[in-house]
Amino acid sequence: MHIFEGFLPSPWWQLWFVFSIPVIFFGMYRLNKLVSEKRELLPLLAVAGAFIFVLSSLKMPSVTGSSSHPTGTGMAAILFGPAIAAVLSLIVLLYQAIFLAHGGLTTLGANVASMGIIGPVFAYVIYKAGMKANINFYVVVFLATAFADWATYVVTATQLALAFPAEVGGVAASLKGFLLVFATTQVPLAIMEGALTALIFKYVIQVKSDALVELNVITESVLNKLKGAGQ
C-alpha cells in the first residue's frame, strides 16, 4: 500500500526518513560487500529488482472485483534476505514514484519503512522460523508472504493514524478507522498473494531448483523431499 505524495504532514515524513535511512545504508553496505565478493551477483540483483517491479505492476484479480498489485517484496526477502530486499525495494519504489506516480518522494521514507523494511523482515523471520520447525515449504512461503503483507498494512495504517490522530480517542481511534477501511482490500489480498507466491515457488522448484539452492533459500535435502513428494 503506497502512501501518496504530500499525504504525510511535516514532522512525520521526516521521521520516517530518519527510521529508513540507517537501514538502507546498512543494506547498501551489505550489498557492496556481497558484490565485491561475488561480482556475478550484480546483474542478478538488478534483474531481480526488475522482476519485482514488473511483478508489482501486473494486475491481480481481487476478490471484490477491483484490481490490485502483488508487491513481490516478500519474495525478495526470502530470496536475498531483508537487508538487500530493502535496497531493492527502495529502487523499485523510487521508479514507481517516477514512472507510474505510485507513492511519492516525501513519503518515500514511510513507504520504504512499511513495504521495504518491516514487511520483508516479517517475511524473513517467519520463513526462517518455519523452515527450522520443519513445516512444509509451501505453507511456510504462504505464511511468510501473507504475514509480511499484513505487517505492511498495519504499519501503513499506523503511519497514517500517527500523522492524523482523532480528536476523540487519539491515535488509537483513528488507527481503528484506517485499519477497518483498508482491511476490506488488504485481508483477502494478502491471502491471494501468499497463495500466488507459494505457487510461483512450486513452479520454480519444478523447473529451476538449482537457482534456489545457489541462493541458499532451501537446502538440498528439503529440495529432494519436495521433489520426491511431487512425483
Binding site: 557492496n32 526488475a50 522482476f51
Partner: peptide, 18 residues
C-alpha cells in the same frame, strides 16, 4: 555507492525487457 547506481541502471534497462 557505485554498486547501488549500477543496479539501478541495469534494473531500468531490464524493466522494459521483462
Amino acid at each position: 555507492p557505485d554498486s547501488f547506481i549500477e543496479i539501478s541502471m541495469m534494473m531500468y534497462r531490464y524493466i522494459f525487457v521483462f
